[in-house]
């Protein structure tokens, strides 16, 4: 199952699907890193609204994507962690594993965060 990646101006938006397997996530990581370079993207938004579970593997992979994207000169924002998933992540001890990664409530807020950072000169030209 391929994750759809939308190009929105200087940003890439990846919408993760429910029932995505581990190998799908690893594939997403590879594709995103390549596209950040191809489109000279300033930011990546990972939308996890549709995920039914954020377990330790998903959390570790998303953190890895954010760190690698950052090494490619772009910023990552994770959006749409649902209330019950946020609670499960805290119970599991995963909340601190995403520290350092920007999170936002929804897509609109994520775009606003990225736009603000770019206005402040924190993005590539």
């Amino acid at each position: 199952m391929n994750t759809s990646i939308l190009k929105q101006g200087p940003y890439l938006i990846a919408i993760l699907q429910a029932g995505q397997s581990d190998s799908d996530l690893l594939q997403l990581q590879e594709t995103l890193l390549e596209q950040v370079g191809r489109f000279r993207s300033r930011g990546v938004i990972l939308d996890v609204t549709l995920l039914d579970v954020m377990d330790s593997f998903a959390t570790r992979t998303l953190r890895g994507i954010a760190q690698a994207v950052s090494l490619r000169g772009a910023e990552t924002v994770i959006v749409g962690i649902r209330p019950e998933i946020a609670f499960a992540m805290v119970q599991l001890g995963l909340d601190t594993r995403l520290s350092g990664v920007l999170t936002a409530l929804d897509l609109e807020e994520a775009l606003a965060i990225l736009n603000r950072r770019c206005r402040e000169g924190m993005c590539r030209d």
Partner: peptide, 11 residues
């Protein structure tokens, strides 16, 4: 929310 906790543990 309990369904999510169970699914996460199982995962």
């Amino acid at each position: 929310s309990d369904l999510t906790l169970i699914a996460t543990a199982l995962s």
